[in-house]
């Protein structure tokens, strides 16, 4: 009996992570308002990425399990904080958001080390993500102008995440490695 083919949850996880990150940066650089960020953050970046993360458990991939579940929760929390600030429920100040981001920077730093052991493309994605988080931390603690710099930098991060997503999808549909992700850095 032929074994049933399983999909790769990382394709969905990277899609949600990349798209929501990209849209938030469109807001951060001043191209659009915050509305779509909230709903995408709850649904694609949040719920879909969280489900993708939970599905990674079955594949035995602890990196994907932790990363996608973690960043899914990041997006849901961020969207709920935005809504909370609008409706006066557990309001977060700019400094509160700053410390929230510092915690996620530390989380990202751990995954960044792991990512370098997986592939060059993933190592680069997490390097860019870590730099983006550090820039956002600084933007919340005295250097507000860095929000825009972080915005452009994180757009590149989102595109890198999509590159890996495309690598997974194209490898499946073309039956060969169309977009190489490179060897691990360490």
């Amino acid at each position: 009996m032929a074994e049933q083919k399983l999909g790769n949850p990382a394709a969905v996880g990277l899609a949600g992570f990349g798209l929501t990150t990209l849209v938030l940066q469109f807001h951060n650089v001043g191209w659009m308002g915050i509305g779509p960020v909230i709903w995408l953050g709850l649904v694609f970046g949040g719920l879909a990425q969280l489900i993708a993360g939970l599905q990674e458990m079955k594949t035995g991939n602890n990196f994907g399990y932790c990363a996608f579940t973690g960043y899914g929760c990041f997006w849901i929390s961020l969207a709920l904080m935005l809504l909370g600030n609008h409706f006066n429920i557990y309001v977060s100040s700019k400094t509160d958001i700053g410390w929230f981001l510092v915690a996620w920077t530390a989380f990202t730093a751990i995954l960044w080390i792991g990512s370098m052991r997986i592939s060059g493309a993933l190592g680069l994605t997490f390097t860019l993500l870590l730099i983006g988080f550090i820039l956002l931390d600084l933007a919340h603690f005295g250097y507000p102008g860095l929000t825009v710099v972080a915005g452009y930098e994180l757009m590149v991060t989102a595109c890198m995440a999509w590159y890996i997503m495309a690598h997974i999808i194209f490898a499946d549909v073309f039956g060969r490695d169309v977009l190489p992700v490179g060897k691990p850095w360490i």
Binding site: M81, S93, K94, D96, I97, P144, V148
Partner: peptide
């Protein structure tokens, strides 16, 4: 004014 989720 500095305000959360905004550049000011």
């Amino acid at each position: 004014a500095e305000i959360a989720f905004s550049n000011g």
